[in-house]
Design a protein around this nucleic acid. Structure first.
Lengths: 149, 149
DNA sequence: CTTCTTGCAAAGAATTTGCATAGAA
DNA sequence: TTCTATGCAAATTCTTTGCAAGAAG
């Protein structure tokens, strides 16, 4: 995904809800996008401030929430217990070592047989979770779509 | 994974660190295990209280942290922005609709071609994240293992 | 016996909210 | 112009911590 696509998606989402695409939201999205890693709110905020001193934390929180709502980002707790957010690379695999916390990036294969992948990396699987964000069948069908809360 | 296995794993983890397996920890693990879903701390706490009135929130927090550290559980932010925890089923797939929030459980295939799976479920992928928790090569090797903080 | 745990309540972080003003459509 | 978004700081909510008493090994 390129930035333009992400921004379009955000734009559409906001328009549909009669909300606005402000320069703050654009800025935050762009910085988040450029980072290409998972960040805590604080980390993201710091980067944002580097670029523009006039954006408040609250706006970062509010914007990240929107990004999560529209499916562009998602949040999770990392090994250290901190809540991190990640902009959605379409397929992104992490192998997280629960002993040392090391994170092995594995963006390569498109989910094809992670078992094989783990074997190749000599990574002993304890457990895992796959979250796929998208639009379910019901919501894809305009007639039966209930919309979002 | 059965409860006994989980408890053994926890036990080993605690022993290795000279920590103790208390009845509170067993209780919380068992209740969490029985729930078979992702829960917020509050939800878990409520269930725990139903079974035993003398366990404090702090203990639930502390225990869940241990479960995360030893790789039995992991935390993430759900569609509503709440931090949820999930005990590790070895392979567990969720298809999360970003419109309605519906979660399609897809425990079936062992990650084999989620793309195919999504097609079958008519689920339009926006993005996804796979977290695999386990022991990395370095940590599996007792000689080079740095241990955990 | 010694050391780690616990429950409680207070402390500390993290996140949200109210309100007047600025800004997008 | 009309509403929504923003920044600030206060208000909330979520999590962690300190401590005396109680268990686990």
């Amino acid at each position: 995904m390129v930035l333009q696509q992400a921004e379009d998606l955000l734009h559409d989402y906001l328009m549909a809800r009669e909300q606005k695409l402000t320069w703050q939201r654009r800025t935050i999205l762009a910085i988040f996008f450029a980072a290409r890693t998972h960040l805590t709110i604080e980390e993201l905020y710091k980067k944002v401030r580097e670029q523009n001193r006039n954006i408040g934390v609250a706006t970062v929180y509010r914007t990240v929430k929107i990004l999560c709502d529209c499916g562009l980002a998602s949040g999770f707790k990392d090994a250290g217990g901190n809540v991190k957010y990640e902009l959605g690379q379409e397929y992104h695999e992490h192998l997280v070592c629960v002993k040392c916390g090391r994170v092995i990036e594995a963006v390569e294969a498109v989910y094809q047989l992670p078992a094989k992948l783990c074997t190749a990396k000599k990574f002993k699987v304890l457990h895992s979770r796959l979250e796929v964000y998208g639009i379910c069948q019901e919501c894809s069908n305009p007639c039966s779509c209930a919309g979002k809360a």
